[in-house]
Design a binder for these strands. Structure first.
Lengths: 339, 339
DNA sequence: TTGAAAGCGGTACCAA
DNA sequence: TTGGTACCGCTTTCAA
């Protein structure tokens, strides 16, 4: 018995060649359809391939061709449904392209993100999709000197770098306008993390809508959240303690809304009868909260898909066709007309 | 101007050697700490590395060493919080090990799963973690002839294959016993997909607990779900239409429970005042449903972590230390004592 | 149509 | 301590 059990080593193109009685080049030609090969040799090679159940070593192929057939994906948090949905879009766009996604997470930390991108480049990915994060446009630009990069949540369009940004401000305006339309005048806002571009844009949208409606912005009505359920919960408690009057809450994202909703439930405050809630994102779960959450849908899946497709286009030397993806108000049951 | 903008090609170890005025081998030694190198040469090399911002080509390294430093992960559905949590565990276990995860999805389709595993092997991953799925133990065994594989949701322990199974039946018993303890006697069950081992085990646990309590199993009280919210919603409607009496619903998983909860909400049936609900999984969201969901916690994160750790151990020739992970009842607010 | 051989970017053995 | 060199598995000229 051997000292340790080792994996049976995979067969190589050379073995196939040897068994089929041809040269490696011939096998390669057959595999890639690079040139005409006589029928009998082809048969022999195919037989050898089948019986060794030979599979080309993609590593070797990648090394030789200088293309690893891999797209690096930098995400922030695997657990977040937001990123997950984007990932699904990426997966869909890559399906059948021959490219496989290599997913790494940066955990919202610029240093870690940069490190992860370096890792992706060390693995010689052919292109990179960056899903949000804290990297500066400058850093992305530098990375993009080496390979095509598409980043979401930014507006860049230099060399091999492209950005796909959704109009966050407009989305927040949509939500606020809707509440206004329902007759709400005192609308609280639970903000996202201020170091976050999107969070600031949403706050700005909220303010813009208020202003357009001629309603004075009341700073006491906006309280800090963290884009998580916990933040929403705490924020509502805080809001309630200040004894500010309000009839609706606009949450910077759906997760925040879930937390807010629970805080209200705990105090026996009914949604939407006593207070309306509106979210932002339209996570899959928002269909199944009680009540189902009225929210602003971000086309995250489509965004992921477009990002990946764009990287592929850049890789093929095509001119990418970026179309602006619209946000959309999803009216469900957590917001209602004020009486 | 050139015809198309190309990525600046990355620097190689040879260039570093040339610039530093040493041989490639010396550079390699310094990089890997394989042997002592004189201080001045080291300085020169380090300078060259810094100024070229040289990063080793992991593809080439992998090819040469026969180890790609990659662990393949076969998941089923990126969108499912269940798999996502397992993935987080895997990510945690791999962090700092030098191995990167290569994630592919099989979408619950045996053929696609097999194909994905082939892809992973073609990319010469060093080991594979299979998160549930429809592959047969036999197929996994065959794959495991080539490399170490750890699969969740199965009991296997042959050669380089290991299984990590959670005791689903016991978990279901926990849930049912708890409901019984609260005084419930008519307990409905919304089942998962019958082709799913876990689903069958949970049903069995429900029946076993009933039987142990001397309560006759009532087939009219178990209705088919699909492990999704939609199934839970439909199932409750169905249940209600049959006019069977029941005071509690045990859902085969949390997602089912979310759907069930919404169906109840729609009919104005209160949870837990009128009907108790208990789930299975303890997804992150279950903390924030209204009311927060009483459920059975599956240590999915730990499972993913253990799976990845085990692959690493197998890879290092160590003897893996598999410990049985316990399921646990999480009492929150969706189930209460019957009056 | 086919094979020989160089080379992708590293590693590691051997000799100096 | 250092350099030369064969080789990992595959692709791609170049000649035959």
């Amino acid at each position: 018995m051997s000292q340790s059990s080792h994996a049976s080593t995979a067969s190589t193109l050379h073995e196939v060649a040897r068994i089929a009685g041809v040269s490696p080049s011939t096998v390669s030609r057959i595999l890639n359809g690079t040139a005409r090969v006589s029928d009998d040799k082809r048969k022999a090679v195919e037989a050898a391939i089948a019986n060794l159940s030979y599979k080309p070593n993609l590593l070797a192929q990648g090394l030789k061709k200088g293309r690893a057939m891999t797209i690096g994906i930098l995400t922030q948090d695997l657990a977040s449904p937001f990123f997950t949905e984007a990932l699904m879009g990426v997966e869909a766009a890559l399906a059948g392209s021959g490219y496989a996604p290599l997913i790494v997470s940066g955990h919202w930390h610029a240093d870690e993100e940069a490190e992860r991108v370096e890792l992706l480049m060390a693995r010689r990915v052919d292109g990179i999709v960056i899903l949000s994060g804290s990297l500066s446009d400058k850093q992305i630009g530098r990375f993009a000197e080496r390979l095509p990069i598409v980043a979401t949540g930014r507006r860049i369009d230099t060399g091999q770098a492209r950005g796909i940004a959704l109009d966050q401000l407009e989305g927040a305006r949509l939500a606020t306008d809707y509440l206004l339309e329902l007759g709400h005048r005192q609308i609280a806002f639970i903000a996202g993390l201020p170091e976050h571009d999107d969070a600031r844009a949403r706050l700005a949208g909220y303010r813009a809508a208020l202003e357009a409606a001629g309603i004075a912005f009341n700073p006491a009505l906006v309280v800090q959240g963290n884009f998580q359920e916990s933040g929403g919960l705490l924020a509502v408690n805080e809001l309630l303690e200040t004894r500010q009057r309000f009839t609706a809450i606009f949450c910077a994202n759906d997760q925040t809304a879930y937390g807010a909703r629970l805080a209200l439930y705990r105090r026996g405050i009914r949604v939407p009868d006593d207070i309306s809630i509106i979210g932002f994102d339209d996570l899959p779960n928002s269909n199944y909260t009680t009540p189902p959450l009225t929210t602003v849908r971000q086309p995250v899946y489509e965004m992921g898909k477009q990002a990946a497709r764009t990287v592929l286009q850049l890789l093929n030397g095509e001119t990418p066709t970026l179309t602006q993806l619209p946000l959309e108000l999803i009216m469900r049951e957590s917001a209602r007309r004020i009486l």
